[in-house]
Design a protein around this nucleic acid. Structure first.
Lengths: 236, 236
DNA sequence: TCTTAACTGATAGTAAAACTATCATTCTTG
DNA sequence: CAAGAATGATAGTTTTACTATCAGTTAAGA
């Protein structure tokens, strides 16, 4: 039996719920494709409208502006990811194994082995993942972070962070930097992936050819090393 | 005797060398102030021109566009920082102490003790630092990274990274992730500082009141812990 | 089924941003 | 003092980022 993951989004993230209509759903789905293809700054509501055969003004009925669409997509991804973390670690007793699962989820590794579909709810997860890598930090690196934060726009990110921090504390009770460790883990996973692809001189890994021998992902190895060396280190 | 740090910039970073004229220097100096005040996306060449009493078109003679100005400012900062790292670690024999200095430099800590002026060459270093924290990743998180990289726009960042990686290897010969460790150290320092200020739920530190008891910077402690736990960990 | 509300499409518009072009003026510098 | 470089001033173009209006279509309720 299959369950549908219902990702219930904060109302502040949109003007009209895009999941409530066919057009809304297409705005989100095609928005993902377009943003993944041409990037956030090159994307415009006009281009998106043309692509889905509607008008700019119709898109504005759903999202206040392009930035809010980005925030929505990223928030959706964080909620999806938190659900996956919850689900994948639920049945485990070994908290080290939980952290291992989290590492793989962050890199979107071994999805088939983890029984994760790449198209939940028709959302293209790998495309979203690449948007998160390239654009997610633009969601909060603005001069209006504080107001956006007040509207709870970043709650999904914080929730994911809290959940990971909780597992960190389970693995290593009393660790004094659980939250920072969680947020830096997430961020490091993403921009190291970006550097690996686009600025390899900033990393020690080459781009991975697709379909390579699994379990030999150098970025995963690096993240594992970073995480566990910090958690396994002497008393606090 | 005082030496002037000559930061020689890559020619690809500008159309006309801004350090070669009074107007150019004002564009850069006031550009720093304006961008620090209102942020990258809110800044326009018109606003900058108004501020310094010139015209948009004059600014375009120096920089192709706003993004290039950002890349220029960030590159300047990386070059300045690399010079500081070089200078501050030069006389030291203990490589652990070198890494300690680097941590402080990344957080722009204890400048006076390190004999660093906050206004090198009339550049407002703390303002630049806050730009780097908030905006630097926008310099490379674009769909034209590859072309920009080909033009060597990110060389100063890579050079800084290499220098830190070199010191890491000095401290821990054979460490297999020197570059990634260096780049993740730099990035972590910056966005943890951002989170601390604007999204404190993602960290374990509060905002630091200015003029607090020195040597009790929790972010510095966290970074130190992360760095040395990874470097001091078992064989590779 | 009729009515009304909700939604979308279509058109049209504005304000500002992001440039480009031109030319006169001023300021150097040989 | 003549030539060249830099700047100021003005005026444009194109694109983005929106807003407004209204007609038509669809859906839902009485």
């Amino acid at each position: 039996m299959e369950y549908t993951v219902v990702v219930r989004m904060n109302e502040k993230l949109f003007l009209r719920d895009p999941e409530g209509s066919e057009l809304g759903r297409r705005i989100v789905r095609q928005g993902i494709q377009l943003m993944a293809e041409i990037g956030f700054e090159e994307m415009t509501f006009r281009k998106l409208a043309d692509r889905i055969g509607t008008k700019e003004s119709s898109i504005y009925r759903y999202f206040e502006n392009k930035h809010r669409l980005l925030v929505y997509l990223v928030a959706w991804y964080w909620q999806w990811l938190e659900y996956q973390v919850l689900f994948q670690t639920n049945n485990l007793t070994d908290s080290r194994e939980k952290l291992e699962r989290i590492l793989k989820l962050l890199l979107l590794k071994d999805l088939s082995q983890l029984h994760i579909s790449t198209a939940v709810d028709d959302m293209d997860i790998p495309a979203l993942h690449s948007i998160v890598i390239q654009e997610a930090s633009k969601a909060y690196l603005t001069h209006h972070v504080t107001e956006d934060n007040r509207e709870q726009l970043f709650k999904p990110y914080k929730d994911l962070c809290s959940r990971i921090a909780g597992i960190i504390l389970e693995y290593r009770p009393g660790y004094p930097y659980a939250r920072s460790r969680a947020s830096s883990l997430i961020e490091t996973a993403h921009y190291q992936a970006f550097f690996m692809q686009h600025l390899p001189a900033l990393t020690d890994f080459g781009v991975e050819p697709p379909g390579r021998i699994e379990s030999k992902d150098p970025l995963l190895t690096f993240l594992r090393h970073l995480l566990f060396s910090s958690l396994d280190t002497a008393r606090f």
